[in-house]
Design a protein around this nucleic acid. Sequence first.
DNA 1: GTCTATATCCAGATAGAC
DNA 2: GTCTATCTGGATATAGAC
Lengths: 201, 201
Amino acid sequence: MARNQQQNKKMREDRKEQIQAEALHQFATKGLFATKIKDIADGVGMAQGLIYHYYNSKEDIYVELIKEALDKMNAAILMLMEMPVPPHEKIIMAIKQMLYTIENSDDFTQTCRLIAQATNSTAIPEGARKLIEEKRDLPYQEMAKIIAAGQKEGTIIDADPKELALVFWTSLNGLAIYKATRQDHTAMPDPRILINIFLKE
Amino acid sequence: MARNQQQNKKMREDRKEQIQAEALHQFATKGLFATKIKDIADGVGMAQGLIYHYYNSKEDIYVELIKEALDKMNAAILMLMEMPVPPHEKIIMAIKQMLYTIENSDDFTQTCRLIAQATNSTAIPEGARKLIEEKRDLPYQEMAKIIAAGQKEGTIIDADPKELALVFWTSLNGLAIYKATRQDHTAMPDPRILINIFLKE
DNA sequence: GTCTATATCCAGATAGAC
DNA sequence: GTCTATCTGGATATAGAC
């Protein structure tokens, strides 16, 4: 009996993940309002009404995706923060890693795109708005700390750490959006161009 | 009679501009699908049905706005191109001008936001999609030319001009999006941070 | 030119059979 | 768990009076 309950629960979770994956794809490319429940259902291969066996509303799916996207992003940043390397190495690693991921990971690209869409629209569910407000500043704050540490170390150029952190993330975000919206395989720039913004020579 | 016809035409144009201004604001903040014709009509202070006296459809308004936004952007780039100053000066001027405009012009910010929304969604009218495809590469191409000229001059760092142009526009675009989506008065970074990406010291 | 009223359609969500 | 059928609301666009 316990075995069966567990199995059922797992199957339900699997099904929800299918829906999530499809919804991420659709929301990221078309946005919340242009995506119809039927589109998601068709993508998964289930009846339109069946979606409501797993979620209470379209908004619920959306908010869950936004939450996961933000958490995934922030977890990646915090992992970087804790690496046992000096600040300027963290920055070099982060830039190389981000450029590589932007160029090669479709899932990451879609996640970026979802967040960009959400951030750039006021017409999103209240729950999503709150999550974004609450979580979106963390990367900027953490990067400002790394930069300040690097300046103390003497490896990072002299400028307001907050401003440098702003340039750091908005540049990478701009590149991610650019990549996401071109179907062709646009190459990312040489990492050194970006690294040069921050490091003293 | 001719006098009257002219007056009527002008009044009609004025009314269309009112609609356009309101639609730009709404589309830029909420997107095409979340914006209802009634929202626009309410913003202008006219009945919902009256909009159709001036436009055939919501999509028509949208496509017209996209066209004007892209043309305005490209015209600004071309003006810069033709200024009688050396390449590295053009880059310095462009960065300073862009940062200043991002920080101070609400209209520009909304235009950026509209284009970002449109570029980042596949669910836009065919006409808008075509215009974007057709016009969005011009800034990248023109900037690559300026950069290549600056390299010949010896003032711009050694790297692929296309990649530098990519970093140039995506960085500024990232900053514009950032600014557009924060209600508070977020300061732009010191221009020298960005200028340093491109200029030899 | 402007309004009110309405035809029409579409999509989110629910009900109920299997 | 899954489907089909349906209720319901809301939004685009049109019609017609003033």
